[in-house]
């Protein structure tokens, strides 16, 4: 699988401040790519470089194998975190204007807008001014404007902020549908549950450096902790807890069960296999729960950033 976007060893300084230091990312075609990092890490700078808003000091950016140039503006749709619309302009006029700036003809833009407005059931907003709309409504318009010119690459910076759960879900479904239609999505957010749910690949940027990157599943494998969440029904819970503590490293677990079970997180020692643990446990009581603990993106994020 080829990459749609390749950022190669990009650095950017603002005066004495290093915003990006030798950062490389590769976004596979058709993937949803999570760009993560704490506030002020340099994500926005990287996104602005891809959008040609700022130029990198060193390094190259290739879109679809071609060095980034003016022609690529129409291939990218960008929903910035700091976003807004002209308050006193009418919705329709404004959407037409922004679409034309992205290279659509007026007629084409009008047709597509009609399609999207019908789809999101906002057709009757056409002649309203933005200042008459709620924040969530304005965000919908903003989303439509971002995707209207059918770009190859969509960049969403905190796309769900300002949406209620229903509309957030609606937008999420639209993003997934756009991906199915062939778009590649870069997704910058602090909502780890949506990263977990949507992203195939991630890159984690901290203090201007990329500190982690690759397929989400690979990263999770890399970060797995050989720990199993266990629930077991026994008569003497304290005795078993004692016994297990001697053999493994054990901590309290918390999950819902039907009976009064002993609930523990058990970390395997090197050389042990999960089956060894399971076999051992079955000799002690009825095992009702046995699940491998997969590190969440949230855990990985906190852990790597802290260690960095």
């Amino acid at each position: 699988m080829s990459n749609l976007l390749e950022v190669n060893k990009v650095s950017k300084n603002f005066g004495d401040f290093k915003a990006l230091n030798n950062v490389s990312i590769a976004v596979p075609k058709g993937s949803i790519f999570g760009l993560l990092g704490p506030n002020g890490a340099g994500k926005t700078t990287l996104i602005r470089i891809v959008n040609q808003i700022t130029m990198p000091d060193v390094g190259t950016v290739h879109l679809d194998g071609v060095s980034l140039n003016e022609q690529h503006i129409k291939d990218i749709g960008y929903l910035p975190e700091e976003r807004g619309l002209y308050k006193s302009m009418k919705v329709g006029e404004q959407a037409l204007y922004l679409a034309q700036l992205k290279g659509l003809s007026k007629a084409e833009a009008r047709m597509r807008l009609k399609y999207w407005f019908d789809r999101l059931e906002i057709g009757d907003w056409w002649n309203k001014k933005i200042q008459e709309l709620s924040k969530g409504m304005a965000q919908k318009i903003q989303f439509v404007v971002t995707v209207l010119h059918q770009p190859k690459l969509l960049i969403f910076d905190e796309p769900f902020s300002g949406f209620d759960p229903i509309n957030a879900n609606l937008i999420k479904d639209e993003i997934l549908r756009l991906r199915e239609d062939g778009a590649t999505v870069i997704f910058s957010t602090h909502r780890m549950e949506s990263v977990e749910e949507l992203c195939d690949d991630i890159a984690l940027i901290n203090k201007s450096n990329k500190i982690l990157g690759g397929k989400l599943i690979d990263i999770k494998r890399q970060y797995k902790i050989n720990t199993y969440e266990v629930g077991i029904r026994v008569n003497d819970k304290e005795y078993l807890r004692q016994e297990l503590t001697e053999k493994f490293s054990v901590s309290e677990a918390n999950f819902k069960t039907l009976e009064d079970e002993l609930k523990l997180n058990i970390k395997l020692k090197d050389g042990h296999k999960p089956n060894d643990l399971l076999n051992y446990l079955t000799t002690k009581g009825d095992v009702s729960h046995f699940v491998e603990l997969i590190p969440s993106v949230n855990d990985i994020f906190i852990k790597t950033v802290k260690n960095n």
Partner: peptide, 16 residues
């Protein structure tokens, strides 16, 4: 200033 305060500027600047 209006474009700055309404935060539309970044949207525009990614096109022109």
């Amino acid at each position: 200033i209006e474009e700055k305060t309404s935060r539309i500027i970044e949207v525009i600047i990614s096109s022109v």
